[in-house]
C-alpha cells in the first residue's frame, strides 16, 4: 500500500469509526448517568433494541427521521420506567430485572417485527451525510470528520451537555451524591428515588436514541438483534471511561475503531485472516479492556444497591 492509499484508508477508517461509535456513545453516556446514581442497568441491550424498533416503525409510518428518533428515545424511556419501577420502587435485584428486560426487548421487537414488517421487506430513508462547504472538500480530513449525518455530529453536543449537567449543575451534584451516599441526600431532604428515576430515564432515553441511530442513521432496516451486544459493550465502556461522560465519548470512539477495522479489513481481499476473527474483535477487546482497566476505585460506592429509607 503506498502512502496515498494508506491515508485514504485511514481517513475512511476514522470516519467509519465515529459513525459506528455513535450508538455506543449515546448508550454509554446514558449509562454513566444511571450508574452515577447507583443504578446498574444491564437491560441496556433490550432497551437499545426497543429504541431501534420504535425508531424504525415510526419512520416507516411517517417518513420522518426526526419523529423516528423521538420515538426511539420515548420507547427507551418507557422501557426504563419499567426498569426503574422494579429496581427503585420494588427494590428488586437490578441484575435480575435487567436480564428480564433484555429477554423482553428481544422478544417484543422480534415478535412485532415478524408480525408486521418482515413480509414487506421495505427499508426506510435514512439520515444523509450533510455537506459542509469547504470543510467536507478538504483532502482526507473531509472524509474523516466532515461527511457525517447530523446524528453523528450531535454526539459531541451530547457529551459536552452531559459533562456540564453532571459536574456543573446542582442536579448533577445531587445525582452523583445519590450514587455515593444516598443517606446524606435523604437527610438533606432530597428525594433519592426521584433522582434515581431521573437518572434511569436519562440513561434509557439515550440508549433508545443509540438504538434508533442503528435503524435511522446507519442501516435502513430493522433486523432482529440488530444491536448485537452493543448494550453490553456500553457497560464495559462505562468502566473503562471511569464513569465520566467525556471518557465514555472517547472510549466509544476506540470501540468504533475496532468495528470499523473489522468491516474494512473484511473488505480487503489481500488479508488472509478469517473474517470471524475480525468479527470477534470488539468482543475480545471488551474483555481485554476490563482486564487492563481495573477501575473499581472509581465506581460509585452504592452501585447496584437499592436504597432503603428508614
Amino acid at each position: 500500500m503506498d502512502d496515498m492509499m494508506f491515508l485514504t484508508f485511514l481517513a475512511t477508517l476514522v470516519g467509519a469509526a465515529w459513525r459506528l461509535a455513535t450508538p455506543l456513545i449515546f448508550a454509554s453516556i446514558g449509562e454513566v448517568f444511571s450508574e452515577r446514581a447507583g443504578v446498574l442497568n444491564i437491560g441496556l441491550e433490550g432497551t437499545m433494541l426497543v429504541g431501534a424498533f420504535c425508531g424504525f416503525a415510526t419512520a416507516f409510518a411517517t417518513g420522518s427521521i426526526l419523529l423516528g428518533l423521538l420515538a426511539g428515545v420515548g420507547g427507551g424511556m418507557l422501557f426504563g420506567l419499567v426498569f426503574a419501577f422494579f429496581t427503585i420502587t420494588i427494590k428488586a435485584d437490578q441484575i435480575v430485572v435487567g436480564a428480564a428486560l433484555n429477554l423482553l426487548g428481544m422478544g417484543l421487537t422480534a415478535f412485532l417485527f415478524r408480525t408486521y414488517y418482515v413480509s414487506t421487506g421495505k427499508g426506510i430513508e435514512i439520515a444523509q451525510p450533510i455537506h459542509i462547504p469547504w470543510l467536507s472538500d478538504l483532502p482526507f480530513l473531509g472524509e474523516a470528520f466532515f461527511k457525517q449525518n447530523l446524528i453523528v455530529y450531535s454526539t459531541i453536543l451530547v457529551a459536552i451537555l452531559a459533562t456540564l449537567v453532571l459536574y456543573r449543575t446542582s442536579f448533577g451534584l445531587t445525582l452523583r451524591a445519590v450514587g455515593e451516599h444516598p443517606k446524606a441526600v435523604d437527610v438533606a431532604g432530597r428525594n433519592v428515588a426521584g433522582y434515581r428515576y431521573a437518572a434511569v430515564l436519562v440513561g434509557t432515553g439515550l440508549a433508545g436514541l443509540g438504538g434508533a441511530f442503528l435503524t435511522l442513521g446507519h442501516s435502513n432496516q430493522f433486523v432482529e438483534g440488530i444491536t448485537s451486544g452493543r448494550g453490553f459493550i456500553a457497560l464495559a465502556v462505562v468502566v473503562f471511561a471511569r464513569w465520566s461522560p467525556m471518557g465514555a465519548f472517547f472510549v466509544s470512539l476506540l470501540f468504533g475503531l475496532f468495528y470499523a477495522l473489522q468491516l474494512m479489513l473484511q473488505a480487503q481481499a489481500s488479508i488472509v485472516v478469517p473474517y470471524q476473527l475480525l468479527q470477534a474483535l470488539p468482543y475480545i477487546m471488551t474483555i481485554i479492556t476490563l482486564v487492563v482497566v481495573r477501575g473499581k476505585g472509581a465506581a460509585p460506592s452504592k452501585l447496584g444497591q437499592p436504597y432503603e429509607m428508614r
Binding site: 422494579f86 420494588i90 435480575v96 428480564a100 433484555n102 429477554l103 423482553l104 422478544g107 415478535f111 415478524r114
Partner: peptide, 16 residues
C-alpha cells in the same frame, strides 16, 4: 419469539 416475551415476564413477575 413470543416465548422470549413470556420468559421475560416470568422473571419480572417472580421478582414482583
Amino acid at each position: 419469539v413470543l416465548v422470549l416475551v413470556i420468559q421475560g415476564m416470568v422473571i419480572l413477575s417472580v421478582v414482583a
